[in-house]
Design a protein around this nucleic acid. Structure first.
Lengths: 354, 354
DNA sequence: TTATAAAACTAAACGCGTTTAGTAAAAATG
DNA sequence: CATTTTTACTAAACGCGTTTAGTTTTATAA
């Protein structure tokens, strides 16, 4: 039960496969194929349930109507949601998506980029590990359209869709400062070559500086991507062993925030009494944690939409070489109780239905 | 700056591309190519950084070293984690993965299956919508190796990796019953053609029956996949409007549980005082909710590992046609406080460091 | 010395849809 | 009627790696 090929249709109608190809691609009239013949071809194609082999087509045209998406970690809900939106908008524009996950490893990222190039991908959406701009230069040299998301290379003028990590981190830190916290730790991933993480750190430092709060290098804690549990455990021990060095922790991503919660739970450290916690990147359940976690929320759907639009514009105008574009979208500071204004749920009102 | 092709190597060495192809595929010695020539070919391939075009190769061999993964919803953390594990194990076995998300729509599932077939995928891992077994029959007829995950078709004897949804749901319900709950609602997704959801419902019913608890059709609430908020809101209103019909809710997946939490929060309904809540599928943050949510946890990594192993076994023994296999893995009941044994966090012990 | 075999390599077909260059027949024009 | 144009269609090349069926050269056996 093999698939119907162009040739099958051509033979069964006694015409050439050229003709069939032209008709099915809508170039029939342009090439002067008669109406009846066109109709016969369409009818037969329907009858045999013909679907063109995209691979053979791509081999000839160099176009695959497929875009590659490389995220740093598909199991992180931020990227998972982003992947879903990207898939959605691509599919609307008649593109398929190949998802990949680099797991923050530059060599895996390089491998995946090669793999995608092998597969004649039309373009790439990439959240780069940031360690090595050679990959990006190679994409540029090879003329493969691409859009960076979430993280960019400051030196290179590429297509980019993301948020203002600096300002958002500044606001988040400023929020802590206004609530009276002055010894604020920054918990981040090492090695943090990703521009997003670096900008979050810079925003944090800038907010401290503008508030005339002395920064201590003890506040800065790096945790390896591979073993967050061990790293966060160590980091929190250093930050909170008496005398407590800090009274607030800024987790630079949601995974670190969740891991911090694990550690707090294990050691019975209470938020915000013992220490305040805020997270960059929101999660559905942060609202329902005890206490709810204050976080910066990114407009994930919008990031996905713009990334797809921008990429497709570049793919479909490859010759004209449209100018690169940087799209910076607004974030939202979700203020909850993990840094004060503490109310126990027991103080909430009685059940109100309807 | 185009990519190096086989021909480039052949020409620059003055040999045929046949020879180059054979050498680079390790068939050099078998075909009597001399040692020196083989070495020259390898050296030149390295020098030109040659990477074979997988598409052209696949066109000829019919093999792409790529597997397709279709999940019901990539933004659901259960599937996102599963995707990550599947990617990991596939990559270890030298296969790439094309991820897709059917968003529970049978027609999209059908489209994606066609798309994957077009791309000469070697095999498919699928969490089927369950509405239409024709898709599955077509895969079988076309001889495409596949493994179902999470959901299966009871009538068809296919490869399958998943958990015992019936027994796990039975245990979860039984846990509620032992804590004294007798009016237990079942909140599920409509239309629930997925075997996993149906089995969860059956397990719930069986537990009620074995405990001689009368079941009322009022306990059963279905919510559409597309609009969970509106549906869950309506469902919970019906279940909890005075006089409260139920005192416990069994959410058949994590998304429903999270949405239920949203509604409870909005209406100030307290868990477990006003109503108990349990979820099928665990989430990282369920531990830290207020109160922590009792849930059935699936062994996601193991599901991914077995699915990949089983699929690759079938792909690589396509001729021998190995027997189909059903792998049922154990779940874990994570007992937390959302159904009683209520302790406020305020009663916990003082900070204990180290 | 001649037939035979082994060693080392190549031409060409293949898979399948696209595209260029071209042909045959009918219609229009002079 | 002869020539040009138009209409309707086709052969063959192409992309690129794989594979089959050889070919040429050298070595071995009869």
């Amino acid at each position: 039960m093999k698939k119907t090929s162009l040739n099958d249709i051509a033979k069964s109608l006694g015409v050439s496969k050229t003709l069939v190809s032209m008709v099915l691609n809508g170039h029939g009239t342009k090439n002067g194929i008669s109406k009846q013949t066109q109709e016969r071809v369409h009818a037969k194609a329907r009858e045999l349930n013909y679907k063109p082999n995209q691979i053979a087509r791509g081999l000839r045209t160099g176009k695959s109507n497929t875009i590659g998406l490389i995220v740093a970690d598909i199991s992180n809900p931020f990227y998972a949601k982003l992947a879903r939106h990207i898939e959605h908008y691509s599919s609307e524009a008649n593109y398929n998506v190949i998802f990949c996950s680099s797991e923050e490893e530059p060599h895996k990222e390089a491998e995946l980029l090669d793999m995608l190039a092998d597969r004649q991908i039309d373009g790439i959406i990439l959240s780069a590990t940031g360690q090595d701009s050679n990959q990006i230069l190679k994409l540029k040299r090879d003329g493969i359209p691409f859009v960076l998301i979430d993280r960019y290379y400051p030196r290179l003028n590429n297509n980019f869709v993301g948020v203002d990590n600096f300002q958002s981190a500044y606001n988040l830190t400023d929020h802590l400062i206004r609530l009276g916290y002055s010894r604020i730790a920054h918990l981040t991933v090492s090695p943090s070559h990703a521009s997003s993480l670096r900008d979050r750190y810079k925003g944090y430092r800038a907010a401290l500086k503008d508030a005339n709060i002395r920064y201590s290098s003890q506040y800065y804690q790096e945790v390896s991507f591979e073993e967050p549990e061990a790293g966060v455990t160590r980091a929190i021990r250093e930050l909170l062993e008496p005398p407590h060095i800090v009274n607030a922790i800024f987790a630079a991503n949601n995974r670190l925030a969740v891991t911090a919660l694990e550690v707090f739970n294990k050691w019975n450290i209470k938020i915000p009494q013992d220490v305040a916690l805020v997270s960059f990147d929101d999660m559905d359940l942060f609202k329902f944690c005890f206490p709810p976690i204050t976080a910066v929320a990114q407009p994930i759907q919008e990031i996905g939409r713009h990334a797809v639009e921008l990429l497709i514009r570049h793919i479909e105008n490859k010759e004209k070489n449209p100018p690169t574009q940087q799209i910076i979208l607004p974030t939202k500071l979700e203020i909850r109780r993990s840094c004060g204004n503490f109310l126990t749920p027991l103080e909430t009102l009685p059940i109100k239905t309807k």
